[in-house]
């Protein structure tokens, strides 16, 4: 099992967290929704895997490159 750090590729605010630790996700599934550039922009899963831990809470500000969650693949 490898671990992958999923990072935000944009700056914004965490609007909704869609998954919990332990959740199984598929590639391109929405993990977290950010509010940025006046839009709701999802952070999607880069590949199939299981959510190990979540690094953010709803309402947090995030910068580009910030850790969103850790995925086990």
């Amino acid at each position: 099992m490898a671990e992958i750090e999923v990072k935000s590729d944009i700056a914004g605010t965490v609007w909704k967290i869609m998954v919990a630790p332990g959740a199984e996700v598929a590639e391109d599934d929405t993990l977290v929704i950010l509010e940025s550039m006046k839009m709701e922009i999802p952070v999607s899963s880069p590949e199939d895997g299981t959510v190990k831990s979540i690094a953010l809470a709803e309402g947090d500000a995030v910068v580009e490159g910030q850790l969103v969650l850790v995925l086990e693949v």
Partner: peptide, 10 residues
């Protein structure tokens, strides 16, 4: 694809 970066072209 608006799903990624709101469609902003990087």
């Amino acid at each position: 694809n608006p799903k990624f970066k709101g469609g902003a072209i990087d």
